[in-house]
């Protein structure tokens, strides 16, 4: 006997990767045993690498959205290094690595080539880490946005230069210890700034689509990739991908840490079209930032001194501001 009723997600909802109760057509890409595995086994990413996971999530979703008609430009960085050491490649997509700073521009070139060749079915993704995106690659990224080139740029943000040994980037969060912001002296760790918010800067280019996502919310990420691939013009997706090595968290806690970043409000998940915010992922179980910070040794110095506790309070204020600004908890919900 089959149920005459529409499926309801009482058990795990859409939070798990799969849901055997759902019709196959609406299940996640990652639950499909025939998924592309755009980043194949045998890559040399560290144990529990959030970036490896995020890249497979995103590209598999994109491959499904465009029926495999995809080319990818990749910036230098962990993702590139761990996936393509001669003589082995982990990629199962048409993929090109040029330089650290130019993935967006290479993407532009690819898109121009496809257009001029009349191969409008072939779509372009450019991708890189936070260093290659928010720092060194920023000019090319902004240029690509401004021209509204037909490229989806995906930034896998692990909040520092991990490939070179965990140095600070302008995506490194306030107070975090890195190799170039050591936890010593009167102001240990990174400056207490808000960082460079590239999603908001992307929105300021009034491009068709900007979104943030996290490896902690697969369905949200896949939906956004799918949506992005159905739009033409410049698009930007910023994916939060914890790095167990650089953040000093347990290798098994990658997704958990990402989840707490979102649930604390430190990493707001939202989407915007033509410069206007059109959607946000509401916080389900709000947590104080401590719960997020304490899992990571890059913040451990904050919990050892009174001054450190004051910095935690500042970080909490950043989270609170995000929550208010993006409307991440329902009106009237307890703070």
């Amino acid at each position: 006997m089959t149920s005459p009723l529409p499926i309801k997600f009482y058990q795990t909802g859409t939070f798990t990767v799969g849901n055997r109760l759902l019709d196959v057509s609406v299940r996640s890409v990652q639950s499909d045993s025939q998924r592309n595995n755009s980043l194949n086994s045998g890559h040399r990413a560290c144990q529990g690498c959030g970036e490896a996971l995020g890249a497979r999530y995103a590209l598999d979703a994109a491959m499904r959205a465009v029926n495999g008609r995809l080319v990818v430009a990749n910036a230098t960085g962990c993702l590139e290094v761990f996936s393509t050491p001669y003589p082995e490649s982990s990629w199962r997509v048409a993929w090109l690595h040029s330089l650290f700073a130019n993935a967006a521009a290479v993407g532009t070139g690819m898109a121009a080539a496809m257009k001029v060749k009349g191969r409008t079915d072939v779509r372009v993704i450019a991708q890189g880490g936070d260093g290659g995106t928010v720092d060194i690659g920023f000019a090319c990224l902004s240029g690509m946005f401004e021209r509204n080139d037909d490229v989806l740029y995906i930034c896998y943000d692990n909040e520092a230069y991990m490939n070179t040994g965990v140095q600070r980037s302008s995506a490194t969060p306030a107070g975090a210890r890195t190799a170039t912001t050591p936890a010593v002296g009167e102001a240990p760790g990174n400056v207490m700034n808000q960082g460079k918010n590239v999603p908001l800067i992307a929105m300021a280019h009034f491009i068709p689509y900007v979104a943030t996502a996290s490896v902690a919310d697969l369905r949200d990420l896949e939906t956004k990739v799918d949506k992005a691939m159905r739009v033409h013009g410049a698009r930007y997706l910023h994916v939060h991908v914890p790095c167990p090595l650089g953040w000093g968290c347990d290798t098994g806690d990658t997704i958990k840490v990402a989840r707490l970043a979102a649930e604390s409000g430190l990493y707001p998940i939202f989407e915007a079209e033509y410069g206007e915010i059109t959607g946000r992922r509401m916080i389900r179980k709000r947590v104080p930032v401590d719960e997020y910070l304490k899992l990571q040794s890059r913040f451990s110095h904050l919990f050892k001194t009174t001054e450190g506790r004051a910095r935690v309070a500042q970080i909490q204020a950043i989270a609170d501001r995000n929550i208010a600004r993006f409307g991440l908890v329902p009106e009237g919900a307890p703070a």
Partner: peptide, 22 residues
């Protein structure tokens, strides 16, 4: 014809285009 934002981008766009067969 792409008006890029720097010479670095000019060569990079050319790299992408050439690699994609143009």
């Amino acid at each position: 014809y792409i008006n890029v934002e720097s010479e670095f981008a000019a060569m990079s766009v050319a790299i992408g285009a050439s690699a994609a067969g143009a």
